[in-house]
Amino acid sequence: MSRGLVNLGTAFIGVSVVLSAAAQLLMRAGMLDVQLAGLAGGEWDMNHFRAWLPALGWVVAGLVCYGLSMLSWMGALARHELSLAYPVLSLSYVLVYAGAVAWPRLGESVSFYKTLGIAVIVLGVVLVTWSGRGAGESREDVTG
């Protein structure tokens, strides 16, 4: 198995982080559409259904990302210690914050404490990964 800069187990952690952040952002977008659809009110007819459809789409897309993130996580856990991999998942908070600010649909604002918190989290993840250097990817029987 490769011992390159980015090994398979580490790549799986990265994919899990990105997908779980995407899941949060998509479900948030869906909840905002639910609020919009809720404002429509009135009889339950085709128009009503059309108003709810985008919300449902976002939430389903979010749930799919959540499921795929969990499968990728299993690949990560087969190759890394839990105490090494789990703290790295906190990077998804960083991506959720960045995404919520950058995606106009969510349009959240930048705040000093959140930005400071993000920086401290990243520093913590750097320390955790540094504590695991050279570890992992030692198993040869993990395939697929």
Partner: peptide, 9 residues
Amino acid sequence: LICAGIGLM
């Protein structure tokens, strides 16, 4: 540090 960062956020 991760816990402190979550607290700050």
